[in-house]
Simulated assay, not measured.
Amino acid sequence: MKRSSIAILLAAAVSAGILSCLEPGPASESSQAPLELATPPTGGDFTLDSAAGPVRLSDLRGQAVLIYFGYTACPDICPTNLVSIAKALRSLHPAELDRTRVLFVSVDPERDDPEHLARYVAYFHPNVLGLTGTPEQLAQVAKRYGAAYQRVEDTGSAMGYLIDHSAFTAVVDPNGRLVQTLGHASPPETIRAAIRTALGTEP
């Protein structure tokens, strides 16, 4: 999808109120209901692909890392969560922000190549990095973090299919340990508090 197409999709989200004032409200009703955790998450290291090359979680030691599984064609669940995360990032102190990264892991490798992901996440915040991999790699990483997803055919749509997916955000501390999972549409204040707890900083 070209940059202009992404802009059109996000503009539609704005008109629907998803990005209004960067203040997401309660989760909207959607045919794409978020799934719950697939299994108890254990966390762990992994390597996936970004537009700038492979990214290994262990390379981000010393930083708090938020991990969210979704896809760029997601009509509402992913934008809602990414907007909340972006607002939380903008409310951090500069020193905290410098030690915080967000990994948006696409579970739609058929449509989301690294370059497309980079353009998409750039609309939310510079500290958000888009990652993807082979279906086998994504399944392994999702299992470690308890993420569930499944393709749902949608013949009545030009997209052809949607992906139902769990909508929580995993929080990894600077030592690489999974320390918390945040539910769908967690408010920015909750996300900010989770980041500060992982970093060990004061409000």
Rank of each mutant, 00 (worst) to 15 (best):
N175C: 14
A73E: 15
D164T: 11
K143P: 03
H165A: 08
Y120P: 01
R192T: 06
V102D: 03
A118D: 14
S186H: 07
L129R: 11
S58I: 03
V128I: 15
L138I: 13
Q180S: 13
P94N: 06
A139Y: 05
A158I: 12
E136I: 13
F104E: 00
A158D: 14
A86F: 07
F124Y: 11
L89S: 08
D76M: 10
L60G: 02
Y123T: 04
T132N: 04
G130H: 01
R99H: 14
A167E: 02
A170K: 01
Y149C: 05
P79T: 04
Y145I: 00
R101N: 14
V141S: 05
A185G: 08
F124A: 04
P114S: 12
K143H: 11
T80W: 04
R111V: 08
P79N: 06
V141F: 08
P174S: 06
V55A: 07
Q63A: 14
V65H: 02
D173E: 12
I67P: 00
R151D: 04
L131P: 00
I85G: 03
S91A: 15
P188L: 06
D108V: 04
D76N: 13
Y71T: 02
R177P: 02
A64D: 05
L162V: 08
A86W: 02
N81E: 14
D76G: 08
V55G: 05
G70S: 12
L82E: 03
V171Q: 00
Y145Q: 03
S166T: 03
V107H: 00
F124V: 04
T132W: 01
R177E: 15
R192I: 03
A142G: 12
V105R: 00
R101S: 15
I67E: 04
P109N: 12
D76T: 11
A167M: 08
P187F: 05
R192N: 06
H125N: 12
L89M: 14
G146V: 06
Q140F: 14
A170V: 06
L138E: 02
N127E: 14
P94K: 05
E189N: 10
V105L: 12
Q137T: 11
F104D: 00
T134P: 05
D173S: 09
R99D: 10
L66K: 10
G156Y: 13
R177I: 10
E96A: 13
A118C: 10
Y149I: 05
V102M: 09
T181H: 11
I191Q: 01
V121P: 00
S106P: 01
R99F: 07
Y149A: 04
T155P: 11
P114H: 09
T72Q: 11
Q140D: 15
R151F: 09
L117Q: 03
A147W: 03
Q137M: 11
L89R: 05
I67A: 11
V179C: 12
G183S: 15
G130E: 00
E96I: 07
T169S: 12
R144G: 12
P126T: 10
H184Y: 15
L182T: 01
